[in-house]
């Protein structure tokens, strides 16, 4: 029996990880200093790990023989269900760090809560992912503070990034039919149940960074339904090019 909701739920999480890791991979060899190059790659690697497990699990739920690569490399923009936040470009290091911080401030309590899922696979992944997300959060939060409380230039850049990315944070807390049906079965995490934790982290870190929390304003939406910003197609094009050009090939 195919559990459509669970399949969709896993695919969303997998797409978040895959797309963000692709963005982080763009830094490889180009960061401000070697230590940071290594740190960003670390985060990218953790996220690829999550994506692989989640796609593989989704493929098993679906039962049509699609493996992690079929799911990641052979779907088009409209079939990707990642958050708009994670596809936003690396305009500069401040954007990359703020994107990571806003996301990880959500994902850390998310995986923590997921450890209690009735779904054994998700609970198992959560036990590992929670520790990794804790590191992603610590690393990005430290940078938000350093940049916010560093020089005038760094303050301006990180504050621009915050202003721009804020409108993509509402999507993390959306709860549609897919999520609510799985929350009812105690499989999924109710995003609103961790909202206070996210708020607390964000408020604390922004205060230490001398940054003002943007006023509540219009929140963008659409990622979970496959309605993306223009960036996604440009992420998928290089990512999928070899699989698409040589569909018979194994790598």
């Amino acid at each position: 029996m195919t559990d459509t909701a669970l399949f969709t739920y896993c695919m969303r999480l997998a797409d978040d990880s895959a797309i963000l890791s692709q963005r982080l991979g763009e830094w490889c060899g180009h960061a401000s200093h070697l230590e940071e190059d290594i740190a960003l790659t670390n985060i990218a690697l953790d996220l690829i790990g999550h994506a692989r497990e989640l796609y593989t699990y989704a493929g098993q739920i679906e039962g049509k023989g699609r493996d992690e690569d079929a799911l990641c490399f052979h779907r088009v923009e409209r079939e990707f269900n990642n958050l708009l936040l994670v596809e936003q470009p690396n305009d500069d290091f401040a954007y990359a760090i703020m994107r990571q911080f806003l996301f990880s401030a959500f994902m850390h309590p998310f995986w923590e809560a997921m450890m209690n899922s009735k779904d054994e696979q998700l609970a198992g992944l959560a036990a590992k992912a929670e520790k990794e997300a804790a590191y992603h959060l610590r690393h990005s939060a430290e940078w938000v503070i350093r940049l916010g409380d560093g020089t005038e230039e760094s303050h301006n850049r990180i504050s621009d990034a915050l202003e721009f990315l804020w409108m993509y944070t509402g999507e993390m807390f959306e709860c549609d039919e897919v999520v609510s049906s799985l929350v009812a079965k105690e499989v999924a995490v109710d995003p609103m149940s961790i909202k206070h934790l996210w708020d607390e982290t964000v408020n604390t870190v922004l205060a230490r960074a001398n940054l003002e929390r943007p006023t509540e304003s219009w929140m963008q939406t659409g990622g979970r339904k496959g309605e993306h910003s223009e960036h996604l197609g440009h992420i998928l094009s290089p990512m999928q090019y070899l699989q698409r050009s040589f569909p018979q090939a194994q790598w």
Partner: peptide, 23 residues
């Protein structure tokens, strides 16, 4: 080749290798 690696496994191996070189 990081953004164009043809599978998630190969992408992870490549990223980890480049990370080692940085180390």
């Amino acid at each position: 080749w990081v953004t164009r690696a043809p599978s998630l496994k190969r992408k992870a191996i490549l990223l980890a290798k480049i990370q080692d070189e940085g180390g």
